[in-house]
Nucleic acid binder design. Sequence first.
DNA 1: TAAGTATATTAGAAAATACTAATATACTTA
DNA 2: TAAGTATATTAGTATTTTCTAATATACTTA
Lengths: 102, 102
Amino acid sequence: MNITELEVRVLKSLAHPIRLNIIKQLSSDRLCVCELCADDDFTQSNMSQHLRILKDAGIVTVEKEGNKMMYEVKNKKILDIMKLVDEVVVEDLKETLGGFTL
Amino acid sequence: MNITELEVRVLKSLAHPIRLNIIKQLSSDRLCVCELCADDDFTQSNMSQHLRILKDAGIVTVEKEGNKMMYEVKNKKILDIMKLVDEVVVEDLKETLGGFTL
DNA sequence: TAAGTATATTAGAAAATACTAATATACTTA
DNA sequence: TAAGTATATTAGTATTTTCTAATATACTTA
């Protein structure tokens, strides 16, 4: 795999609503799978598959603790990326609403 | 579309080798389609489709000049994102090679 | 106005991704 | 050791994305 392919894999791994949700949950805490599944209506199997995609892309790391698997964001620059993506989207929305004064 | 869906669309639009190549070419210059096609083996049709994906996601803007369409990166934060993605990948590679001393 | 150049669109097939349901593995505690 | 809890894997189907080839549109220049 060359650099471009690795970059594509990182971007692809982030480009899914469930995985975005995972990253956001992990942005402040280190969590196990059952905690990640808790509030939402994900099946455990599907969550596990998404976590593997993030792990394979090098976005998260896992550590075993008893019978739980603790996930955590590996490189904090991922959070910076997410922040920038959010800003890009928000700036775009603001521009779309440009005609309005509040 | 909510914020998360918009974020996913931005990330998806970046997550493809041809589109990454387009962004890199546009990072320094404002270019027309024929210039973007020039050095590589893309078909014009395929290039056009990828450009539309980037335009729909709000990544690039287009302006007509004569019979050429000039493309340009709309929000420079996209370039910051690409830089961070590159750093994440490179840091990961360095870590993988960690055992070696040069 | 005809021919050439630049770009976009469409349709259909091929490839990749995502989801569900069932099953497997591994640890923990009664 | 049996039962319960936490997580992973597999297989199959459904959905989405990507590519190619053909065609359409729009501008330019002879």
